[in-house]
Amino acid sequence: MITTTYDLMITHPFLAGMSPQHVERLSRWACRAPFKAGTRIFEENGRAERFWLVRDGHVNLDIRVPGRGDVVVETIGPGTVVGWSWLFPPYRWHFGAVTAGPVLAIALDGPGVRRLCDADPELGYELTKRFMHVVVARMQATRIRLLDLSQAPV
């Protein structure tokens, strides 16, 4: 049985409760994105042009800390989303991301999804609410990790 991108998306927890019509419209901007272990998906401060729905595997989110290099602030796994910077100007990554092992994700084109959201404010509002939850959780995880680092010996 061939599984379409839509089929993978409609069952993804990040999109749970979203109307099938909205998921179908989003799926037009989506494709499968398999990654090998240790793949750098994006660099902190790089141009943010997409986001990924993680189906299988884990992704480490990191930040560059002077004197310490890249520090993992959170590891996210199946059912989560990687990348929110594509939604908010200036469209630059606030973190870096590298796979902790093999990952199967669904990549969505940021500029295409932004245009879709502009044309359909209901969809735009729904996605913005979902991504704001992600932003808050990531910032909180970063804060906690940096507090841990400030108390750790160098």
Rank of each mutant, 00 (worst) to 15 (best):
V98I: 15
D118R: 14
V154C: 12
R28A: 11
E49N: 14
D62P: 01
I10W: 06
T142G: 05
A152G: 00
D109W: 14
H22L: 10
R92V: 07
Y91L: 07
H94F: 15
D70T: 10
L104R: 11
C31W: 14
N60F: 06
R145T: 13
Q140A: 13
Q140V: 14
D148K: 14
A137I: 00
V65C: 07
P121S: 05
R47L: 12
P121C: 05
P20W: 08
M139W: 11
W86K: 02
R55P: 03
W84R: 01
F51A: 00
R115C: 11
Q140G: 02
V73F: 06
H133S: 11
A119Y: 12
V82L: 15
R28M: 07
R130I: 06
M9F: 03
V73L: 09
K36T: 07
W84D: 01
L127A: 02
T80I: 01
E49R: 14
L53D: 00
G46L: 10
L53R: 00
H22E: 12
G69P: 05
T11K: 14
D118T: 12
H133Y: 11
V154D: 12
G101H: 12
H22C: 13
S150F: 12
F95W: 07
A107L: 08
V65A: 11
V134I: 14
L87H: 01
W86L: 03
I144T: 14
W52L: 04
